[in-house]
């Protein structure tokens, strides 16, 4: 494909769009919008520099939103099936206090508490079993196995044990984040090179000095790997656990309740909040990772 000429592919696409106009004008409009945006992106993506890195995905995302809005309006799709982005935005703007309360209940009280406790416990256990090769050989396969199980399934049990409020959600989150973090941390504590350990031996460093000055820093990249995986798991755990019982506040509760009332715009509003919270949470952990493990080759680009 040369830069200036318009390739045959584009011509074919344009012909299809024109053909669609005979079938259904609305379809042709959507197709034309899509092709136009794609054409712009195809051009932009050949440019060098940091601008297209942002602009291209942004245009893509905005195009999807525009298509969605247009499709809902043109075809008159019922809001019970798919509300338009504008309707969702209006709902978000109109229910900020509710969304905020749900966010506090689910993300801060349930997910964050469980995340901190679960990750803390995993790191502590990793350090505790560090001195026993026997325990590690036993716990690691079990941990790896458990990490692949559908742990959200314990939600009904936790709700029975700890009640409807956020404590049961935090308990689910603790179990969900524990094993991925444990497995990563144990692997990280092993990640030192023999030469580095020999160096500590020539200094006659104690076990704790070696742990603190060598093995813990060397384990950080692995730990953050686990911590990042755990952010998503924490939110999932906290939201899904609410499907099994909750007070009348919380993101999972709201989604479940809105289903009954068929107010899909509210569900989408909660999903938008969940997406925002998830990305922000992940971004925060990623930010801390960059600050703490700036020395690691993967961060140095």
């Amino acid at each position: 494909m040369s830069g200036a000429a318009i390739s045959p592919g584009w011509i074919v696409a344009a012909v299809i769009a024109a053909g669609a106009a005979f079938v259904d004008l609305r379809l042709a409009m959507l197709l034309a919008l899509w092709l136009g945006a794609w054409f712009v992106n195809a051009r932009l993506s050949r440019l060098k520099g940091p601008l297209p890195r942002w602009l291209v995905p942004a245009i893509f995302g905005l195009t999807l939103l525009a298509l969605w809005e247009l499709a809902v309006r043109l075809f008159g799709i019922s809001p019970v099936i798919l509300p338009a982005p504008s309707a969702i935005a209006a709902r978000i703007a109109g229910s900020l206090p509710i969304l905020w309360a749900d966010f506090v209940q689910t993300a801060l009280k349930g997910a964050l508490t469980g995340y901190v406790l679960g990750c803390g416990a995993a790191v502590a256990v990793a350090v505790l079993i560090d001195r026993s090769a026997f325990l590690q050989r036993g716990l690691l396969p079990v941990g790896n196995f458990v990490a692949a199980l559908p742990i959200v399934g314990i939600a009904p049990i936790m709700v029975m044990w700890f009640g409807f409020d956020w404590q049961s959600k935090a308990a689910v989150v603790i179990v969900m984040v524990f094993f991925p973090v444990l497995v990563n941390m144990v692997a990280g504590l092993k990640a030192t090179e023999p030469m580095q350990r020999d160096l500590m031996a020539t200094y006659h460093a104690s076990y704790w000095q070696t742990l603190w000055k060598l093995r813990f820093p060397a384990a950080l990249p692995f730990l953050f790997n686990g911590l990042k995986i755990a952010t998503t798991l924490a939110l999932i755990g906290a939201i899904v656990a609410e499907f099994f019982g909750s007070p009348i506040v919380g993101m999972g509760f709201r989604i479940n309740a809105s289903i009954g009332q068929l107010s899909l715009d509210m569900i989408w509003a909660e999903i938008a909040v969940a997406a925002l919270a998830g990305s922000a949470f992940y971004g925060l952990v990623g930010f801390i990772e960059r600050r703490v493990t700036f020395w690691h080759p993967s961060q140095r680009r």
Partner: peptide
């Protein structure tokens, strides 16, 4: 003694 290894083995952090 001080021991110098074949590679520098400095701690990157």
């Amino acid at each position: 003694y001080g021991y110098v290894f074949q590679a520098a083995g400095l701690y990157p952090w």
